[in-house]
Structures are given as C-alpha cells and as structure tokens.
Write a protein that binds this DNA or RNA. Sequence first.
RNA 1: GACUCCAUAGCUCAGCUGGAUAGAGCAGCCGCCUUCUAAGCGGCAGGUCGGAGGUUCGAAUCCUCCUGGAGUCGCCA
Length: 615
Amino acid sequence: MNIAACLTLLPNCVSARESLHSKLDQILIKIMNLFELFQHRIAACVEALGQEGVFPSSLDASRITVEPPRDPSHGDLATNAAMVLSKDAGMPPRSFAEKLLPKLAALEGVTSAEIAGPGFINLRLHASLFHSVVNAVLAQREIFGMSTKGKGQKVNVEFVSANPTGPMHVGHGRGAVFGDALASLLSFAGYDVTREYYINDAGAQVDILGRSAFLRYREALGEDIGAIPEGLYPGDYLIPVGEALAKTHGSSLLMKSEAEWLPLVRQAAINAMMDLIRDDLLALAIKHDVFFSERSLSVGGERDEIAALLDELKKRDLIYQGRLPPPKGAPIEDWEDREQALFRATQFGDDVDRPLLKSDGSYTYFAADIAYHRSKYLRGFATMIDVWGADHGGYIKRMTAAVKAATDGLGDLDVKICQLVRLLRNGEQVRMSKRSGDFITLREVVDEVGLDAVRFMMLYRKNDATLDFDLGKVIEQSKDNPVFYVQYAHARCASVARQALTVVNASDDDLKKAALKRLTDEAELGVMRRLAQYPRLVESAALAHEPHRIAFYVHELASDFHSLWNRGKDHPDLRFVIENDREMTIARLALVDSVRTVLASGLSVLGVSAPNEMR
RNA sequence: GACUCCAUAGCUCAGCUGGAUAGAGCAGCCGCCUUCUAAGCGGCAGGUCGGAGGUUCGAAUCCUCCUGGAGUCGCCA
C-alpha cells in the first residue's frame, strides 16, 4: 500500500491526512531512512502552514529534498524547501524559511534549526536518532537498507548476451558484473528482477561457427585440416566440439551436404559455446534466470513472433516501402540502393528509418531484436534494462524508438553502456590480439585474481567511463587496493568481536539493548551518520541504475571505520574494548557490529564476499 | 560528415539527477607502532571543473557553440 499516493488523493480531508502522515512516520521510523522521514515531516509542516493560511495551500511539497549537508558543521540535515517553494509562495526564500523555521524546530528529535546561505534550512538532530539507526541495523540485519520503492514492479535486466561463438573476454566480464550487480541492487530496492540473456543463435555468425566446428569434426576424424581458413573461428575451444561430433556421428556427416549437416553441427556448437559461457559466468557467481533464443522467435515456436510483429507494425502504418540514403563516413563497397521495407524509427526519435528485411527476404537482426523486446513487454516487463558494450552505443536510439513503437509507448527501455576495459599488468598494457584466436579470456583473469577482485574493481567505476584493470594491483594487500581495503574493514570488525569475547561475552540480545547513548564521540557519531545514509543511497543508486555508488559507499564506510579504529591509539578511552566498563564495551561492539552488517550488505549487493579474517 | 559518450588536483577517479567554501585515493612533504591487526591512521600542499556564452535565487551538473579524445555508422551481430 502506497501511503504517499493516498495523501495526494485526499487533498481536503485534514484529519485523514494527519492520520496518514503519522502512520507514514511510524513506517519510516521503522525503516529508519532519516532523510525520507524528515522529507515527509517537513512536507507536513508546509501543508500545515498552508492550512493555516501562512502559505498558499497549493504548494508542491514533493519538490522538497532533504540531504546531508556537504559540510558536517552545517548540521545533520539540510532542506531546500524554502528555495524551491518560495517563488510559488510569492515571497523571498529567507522569509519563507523564517515562517517555516519554528515548525521545524519543534519537530521531534530536532535540537536546532537555522537558516543559512541563500535559504537552506539546516537541522541538527538529537543523537538518539542516530542511535536508533544502529538499533535498526541490529534488528534488521541484512534487511537493513532494503527498500520498497520498487513496489514489486517487474524489471527485466538483459546483460552479457555475448555471441555464442567462443569464450568470454574481459570486456564481456564488465557488462556481466555490472548487469548482475544492477539486478541485485534493484531487487534490494524492491523490484521483481529477472536476469536475462539473449542468445544470438541466428544469422551469419553462428553459421560460421557451425562451419568452423565442422572443420574440427573432420580434424577429429583424422583429416589434416591445415591452417584454419580466413573467416572461420580458429580458437582451440572448438576442438572438443569436433571430437564430440565425431564420437556421436562417426563419419556419417561427411556424406551429407552442408544444408543437411549445418543445422545439426551449428546447434551442437552453439550448445557447447553456451555451456562454456555459462561456466565462465558461474566463475563470477552470475546466474541468469532466462536464456532467450533469437532463433526461437521465428523458428520452432508456436508462431513466428517476428512476422506477428511486422504485421502489427504494418497495421499501424509504421512500415513503408522506401529508399535509404547511402551511409556517410567510410564508403561501403557493396552498397545497394533499393526499395525496401523500412520501420518509421524517425517518428520515435531515431535519425533514420531502419530496414527490417534483407534483400534475400530474411529478417534483419534489428527486426528480431524488436520482436524480442516486444516479447519482454508481453511477458510483463514494462521496464527493461539492456546492458551493452560501448561498441553498440550507436544502436541505442533505434532500439528505444522501437520499444516505444512496439509497446505503444507503454514500455520503457534504459540502455546502459559499459565502456572498454584496458587490461594492465603492473602498469603495462596487456596486448589482446584477437586474430590468432589467442586472447586473454575472462576466465583466465578470474582464475588469476579471484572473483572478488574482478567484481569489485569493475564496479568501482561508473559504467560509462573506461576502466583500467591492473592484474597486479587488484591482488595487492594494501590500502591502495579498494577491494582489500573494504574487505579488511569487514574482517577488522569481526576481529574486534572475537577479541572482545575474552572481556565481555555479549549476546546478540545484549547488543540490541546496548546503551548507545554513551556513544558521543564525534568519530562514532560520524560512523552513525554514514550508516544512516545507507537506505537513501540504495534508493538513489537503484533509481539511477548505478551500482558503482554502492561500491564507493562501502569504501567510505570502511574508511570511517579504519579511522575510528585508530582513534583508539591516541585516545585509549575510545578503544572498543574497555576492560572495566562492560556497558561501554557493549555499546561500542553494537556500533562495530552494525558497521560490519552494512559493509556485508553493500558487498553482497555487489556480489563480493565479506570475509571474517584476511589470510 | 552525422550521432553518442568522455574532458574535474601532477596521476587515477567521485561528486548523491540544480545547492552552501568542488571531494577521495595515489604520487610529494611532515607525523603516529611497549596498547583491540601499522594490511592501518592523522596532517600539509595541490583547482580558471577543457573554453565561451545562455537559462535562475544558485551551474562541475541543464541548453547552444567551439576545442580536444574515444566509439559508432551497413541488409553485420
């Protein structure tokens, strides 16, 4: 039940609104998203002043934002309420703020409220609010930070979708890790997520794969095949495919024409390649829910989905016979100016209309891809996310245009582009030559540095920025290596708990009842402020489809914690374990345990392990 | 030629969808180990946010133009 939505339906019923506001308060206190809690409280204040006639009653309180001030000396929360609403209220921001201020200062848990700069209102909160964040973490554990913002809405995240023509390379790995972490993030934020892989098992590439496999088949039968001809896949990974074919079919395929053996060999090769890819993904702890075959759209299904799509587009006059101007840029030798079936992509924001049929009458890749995205929509996914490599950037416009057309504007596609990965070893670029079929595979990298390092580093960067991946650095055990730094912080938390056992044997229940009010040091409060931001961060990262924000957050939390740890050196009374003060020790252990819990939570969203000790 | 993305400290990058005096980490300099893991921490220094306009209370963030880099352009997938 969305209470916020109810509020908008009840503009005039004051008592009902108040009751809902208080209900919402209770829920938000439980969830312990301080920022959202105060957003609603402040909005309620603005509304109340609207009822009292101080402000117009028509103000749009949803524009109010509440965030941590950049400078902590400004307070715990800052709101822009006066700045965004002053114009509609017909008064300068500062006057607006002055009228609002008393109401905010009177809010529960607010110790001071002041106007600053152009009209910000800074609030200071009673430490007990931050203590209750720790309580919330300990009570909710791995659920803390989870959001219901997604409202169970179905989201389809399509990622990897590498051609089934060979093992995955490092670039694929980035998209794989990104897509998987994004999917986890979205489900943590309350969406119903499906991870999907589109198998490009139709078209010329897989025919070539089939022919390459057939060559290996002949080789397995003892024939000397010499060098692999230009245009076929030379990689060794097809040798076992050939051997398996020889085992099941003997020499019988040699008698047949290509038209007869190709479908069979091709499918065997595709299956083998998909097994290979699934294995590579598994090494990164990635599992897709759905593997969707491109071929199944037009062959072997109950109906030809592509034909059905074209029919529908035709009915809606979105297909016409026309000519395209020749492409600019590098001249294309075999460019053929002809009249053909074109999709009116320009009506939906694309630059040119796009062909749907090849000259031989078969479907273009694009036609299949539209039908595929329509299938997602028909399967209940109004929200679709595609994760693509940088080289497909030019495809975004036509695909989003197509989704608009094929779903009658009801489907939404967000395409996330993963930029290139530069593989380095101690600063030196590792050359990747593809022509010999001899390139560094993703699997080799994972085997060398481990999945934690691969996953974290690929997420410790915005998806649309290029990424340097240094095989030497990512396994370094030093603070220069963010993977290690964060995992070490988690291990340190666990270590504190182990050390403390000899002094106090604190049960989980003891921690929940800890006298948190004794935690008054600025560094301790700083850590609690950081913990308080977690739920808000999860929501904004999910909304923006940006899992890297989680990676940066856990790094910051780790830094706060290392800092807190070292405070105990200069100030022995700030050490976690205080021999003769059981109450204080338990309070500190409660804080440490909540840090550990949130670190583990963030790492789990990223798919990175949270070790209890470093070896 | 067109489109897309990028440009922030010497280097590698954040900057929470428009907020206050732009932040981290390396590298540099100065400190902190008889004390819970120094695998760490603190401090100093470092900037015309590529450039020029515009939008407004307010711009690294949005719009236009320019410069420099990457990618794409197909009946490929």
